[in-house]
Design a protein around this nucleic acid. Sequence first.
DNA 1: GATTAGGCTTCG
Length: 779
Amino acid sequence: MRNPYNLVNKLFNTSEKTKKKKADEEEEGGGFKTGEGKQTQRYCSSGLHVMPVQLVFGGTSGTQVPAHLTRLPIPLISTSTDCSDKTVKDVLEVAGFTVGNSPTFQKDKLHPCNLHLSGEQACIYVLSSAFSAVSLPANKRSSSAAAKVLKSSKVSKYTYTRLSELKPGAVVNVYGVVVFFKQPFMSKGTDYCSTLKITDQSNQKVSCTIFCEKPEDHPRIFKTGDIVRLHRVKTKLFDGAVSLLNTFGFSVVTFDGAEGAAIIPRTASRSFHFNQVDQQTVEELRAWAATQGLISSISWIPLSAVQPKVYFDLTCQLLSKAPVDSTCVLLKVWDGTRCTHPLMTLSTEPAVTEGTSSLSKERDNLIAIVFVYDDHVEGTRKLKPGDFIRIYNLHALPAAGRLPGDFINQSEGTDKLVFHLHWGTSFGRGIRILPNDSQDIQDLKSVLELFPEDELNDSVLLEVWSTPPGTLDGSVEYATERRCAHNMDPVPLAQVKQADLFGQFHVKAQLRSYQPLKLYQALKLHCPKCNFIRDIPDGETVADLFSEASLKSGATPVPWAISGTVHLPAESHNSCSRTLTFYQSRQLITEGRPRDLVYLMGATLQETKKLAVGDQNIIPVLSLGGSLTLLPLSAPFLFQGRKQFYGCSQCSQVCLKALPEGMGMMTEKAVAEALGVQLLHHSLLMKLELQDETDMLQAFLWRDAEQFFQVSAEEAAASQEVQDVIQQTMTRLCSAGSSMTERPWLHLCLTSYQVEDNGQKKTCYQICNTAATINQPRC
DNA sequence: GATTAGGCTTCG
């Protein structure tokens, strides 16, 4: 089956690419804590003296070079220079130095002097500008970021201790393969805590405990076998074994542990060091881990393999989220596989559900209900429908008598499965969002893409639910309103583009431009069977088809109809007299309604239109090889009042024969069926360029275009007045020559989806479940 | 330079 969205895309031949914003960057701890107002010092040893080294940041916060120090230009330095309260700026700024003759000046012809840094006054200020190549404005930082790699920096070199050689009471750097981990969870103190156990070629297993205020600063571990590099962890004896605990300047980088996988560092650090030696270390650990069976060849257990009572890690896409009570949240998820054990189905309150509150029955055993309890509820706050997540140590259980809240009443006596993420973190129980570009998610996406994209949306259509007026903010009048069942906050367009996932978004935006400007060109014909979309042919083309057909209008008797003729005299010297032939169905004659449907041969387009006025059903026919048939399907096969209906030339199998008994109303659908015609539906297709403060985004108006304009496309094709309604709406949203400040704001529900365009996957957007609101004439 | 946790299944 062809994907209609692909065709929507192709009809406009869009070239808009998914602009994946490059992941932002954060600064590595690197020995310096960067917290605002925290004066931080590190000490490097210089002979017997301990000389402070301070990292200096721009702006007003953090460490500054003391104001009493003045900068000494390097060319002015001589042995007679007064050095007190002076600084010299290079990559470093130094103070408390003495100046001596350079013993190598004759040779290197550089500066004749050397700065001597010794004694208690000596101090080096390391300027943040030295790191400027990797710094980004704070508002561009994000926890999902990949950091910039400082390959050539000589600022630091790290040595790594084998895990078997750890001695208590030291600060070390280590590499290891993760054999156990817990996602960060809130401790009873001020920090999130995560624990992991790592091993290396020494086969020593070492537990690590990480305390960090922000979850994103913790190791970003997705599964056992991942490789971590920990900088500045201290060794501590606990329970007779050396364990590791993060300490000042702690930083961590995580890598996929699979051999051959791209070495992509996962870190919240804005910069970090990674050289060839590191690459080799990762590769060696990967190779070693593979021989130790530390890497599972199966990335995850699919839903299809889940049996009652098992604990497993589920990698899935979040479809919806709804609170149950203060200690429990219900998630609906899927991974594209059908569970062999029946899955429990439950509906959630649309008003409190993010995503879709009830899902199509077609999805039986595809959608898993997950109850998330207690401390894990916090972790669901930032989850959005569409997110790809992994739920660790999920417990599959028969629903019978085990459900929280009011659901308990729906579960009596059922052995259908539900999934629980219980209290506590034992066995690494937890939940985390996986990045879209991770291999496991790529694999999952390719499975999910096998499902028609709009299947999930079907149920949304059944739940048309107007946004209560109270949710509109302030006095701003919006020219459209959402009619969807989602309960989500609007997000900036930039965030929509960045998200790169299939799902729904609410946005507030203005209309910058639209296509086509000639609105009749927005009218299309769509085949619901093969999904082909085509333009409505213009009048001239259709008239030509009728002219050609009139040449094939010889008397053709058929057993299922009786015929009559009308002779039309020549209208002028140049034209000939013509004969129109009418056919009336014997079946309809029997039923006493012969005029309900008339087959007409030899008429022009204009004549056919005139005859159809007054709700007459006219089927234009021609004679081909002695039998009666329809005109080519690029012409309308049925005229009904002012309406004209078309058939799909690909999916129709035209056969004119006796009408069935008791056809009832002569609807276009009934007629099409009787003729073997696959009816084409009228639809509207437009491309809207949206804009908000953050970005622009091109979205199609197609599936729900009729809802948007509150007109029927079929009516629009037949009525200038209805076309005027569409024109008026577009003028109101985006009148030619108006400035953006004059244009109204729109509340929109967007659906994003992926299509293939010449083998390239691209993300497209559609405006769904949205209707124009103000000054809307009724039709 | 404090504190947090220190794996080892579930209340629903």
